[in-house]
């Protein structure tokens, strides 16, 4: 089964929310049954990025590359990067993989690779 990151689409006005919101930011719809869960696309272009050298707890690596990606439908997502020399504007595609492990749980999220 292919893993996805899901966005929340307002059935009334079509506005897509990622992450989830209780009230539609465009039309004010507030019935949670009126939001449809739709997978976010995985291809996009890199909007900005950083390499982090001081890592939060739970990481046993030296550096961590993070970025904001503009997906092909125009929505944006923050994710990790597994790319050697990232450049603003480059095409990337994402996979849903483990992005953080703590004592109790593995957290899944989007990791982007060079397209």
């Amino acid at each position: 089964m292919e893993l996805n990151i899901y966005a929340y689409k307002c059935k009334r006005c079509g506005e897509l929310h990622y992450p989830y919101k209780t009230i539609c930011k465009k039309c004010g719809e507030n019935d949670h049954n009126e939001f449809e869960i739709v997978p976010l696309p995985k291809n996009g272009k890199l909007l900005t990025f950083t390499t982090l050298y001081t890592l939060p707890s739970d990481y046993e690596v030296v550096t961590l590359a993070l970025g904001i990606v503009e997906l092909e439908d125009g929505n944006r997502i923050t994710g990790q990067l597994d790319i050697k020399n990232p450049k603003i504007g480059m095409k990337v595609n994402g996979k849903v993989e483990v992005v953080r492990k703590d004592l109790y749980k593995k957290h899944l999220g989007m990791i982007f690779y060079k397209a």
Binding site: T48, T50, L66, H107
Partner: peptide, 12 residues
């Protein structure tokens, strides 16, 4: 969950 910190947001 991605390891985003305030310095990371500031870096981007």
């Amino acid at each position: 969950i991605y390891g985003v910190t305030l310095p990371a947001l500031a870096g981007m």
